[in-house]
Design a protein around this nucleic acid. Structure first.
Length: 271
DNA sequence: ACATTGACCTGGGAGC
DNA sequence: TGCTCCCAGGTCAATG
């Protein structure tokens, strides 16, 4: 579920419920996520007020006066605001309970997600410090993409999914952006032209912006117990459409593997 | 510095 | 129904 738009949606969805709210309990039901969930989080967070909820790449940052909780949703994680007495699922590994009787509950069946703690500036954390620009930030420009891609032999698709280049472009939106930009995902990153860099940066920004807007719809029923989206599915032009007609030229959409990830494109529209 | 591969997990669907 | 196999929205660490 979590591509960048989903994480952004989660961020916007939970912020109003937990900002300025006081933590009463922290419950770790399963420490075995991608990295062990730190012990003694309860001691660190009890009576702390969540000052703000922010996002960097696909990391959510819960900022308090004592430090910052860094949460990553991995492949299958989701965060919901629930009443404390809501039934606990076997994949509900972690939760923060608040004074108002609600909690922030992390469900993550595959346990690729992470819950980390830092007392320092979270942006200086080992996992965040080397990240590239946010895709919707002014710093993510065609010039930057073009310059960084010179002499790179990797495919343009793997290149834009590299978080050192730009964050937040996941597997779905990489394919979608390349379709919109008319670029073959197999093309060597070092071979894209300046014009293509321009098209691609515009495409990434456009797709992610549109997807975040769609996420706004999910926000509404965020408090309900079903936290399952699927709101952007209807907008996808190539992802998961192998064999279907290209919406531009009617050729069959192809599926290939690049860097062990499924990749979808139109061999007629994308050169 | 870059490219490639394996690793971490569970659940769902396809095929038999 | 049930088994096996394959695939999945992420990304770090190890290796060459």
């Amino acid at each position: 579920m979590p591509e960048l738009p989903e994480v952004e949606t989660t961020c916007r969805g939970i912020a109003p419920h937990i900002e300025d709210n006081t933590i009463t309990h922290v419950i770790v039901r399963n420490r075995s996520l991608r990295w062990p969930v730190p012990t003694a989080l309860h001691a660190k967070l009890k009576d702390q007020v969540v000052r703000s909820v922010t996002r960097r790449a696909k990391y959510l940052l819960l900022n308090t006066d004592a430090g910052t909780l860094i949460i990553h949703l991995g492949m299958s994680g989701s965060l919901r605001i629930l009443a404390i007495d809501e039934i606990v699922d076997k994949h509900d590994h972690f939760e923060i309970q608040f004074k108002d009787g609600y909690c922030l509950r992390l469900r993550d069946p595959r346990r690729f997600g992470a819950v980390l703690w830092t007392k320092e500036d979270p942006l200086q954390h080992k996992l965040l410090i080397n990240l590239g620009p946010e895709p919707l930030d002014k710093k993510f420009t065609a010039d930057l993409l073009f310059e960084k891609s010179r002499k790179r032999k990797t495919s343009i698709k793997q290149f834009i999914m590299d978080a050192k280049i730009v964050v937040g472009v996941g597997n779905i939106y990489a394919s979608e952006s390349l379709f919109l930009a008319g670029i073959n995902p197999k093309k060597a990153a070092g071979k894209i032209t300046k014009a293509q860099s321009q098209d691609l940066v515009k495409a990434i920004k456009k797709i992610l912006t549109a997807a975040i807007k769609q996420g706004g719809t999910t926000l509404k029923d965020f408090k309900s117990s079903d936290g399952k989206p699927g709101y952007f599915q209807q907008k996808l032009k190539v992802y998961d459409r192998k064999g279907s007609d290209c919406l531009k030229c009617n050729s069959p959409i192809k599926q290939i593997t690049l860097g062990q990830r499924s990749t979808f494109y139109c061999s007629s529209c994308q050169k």
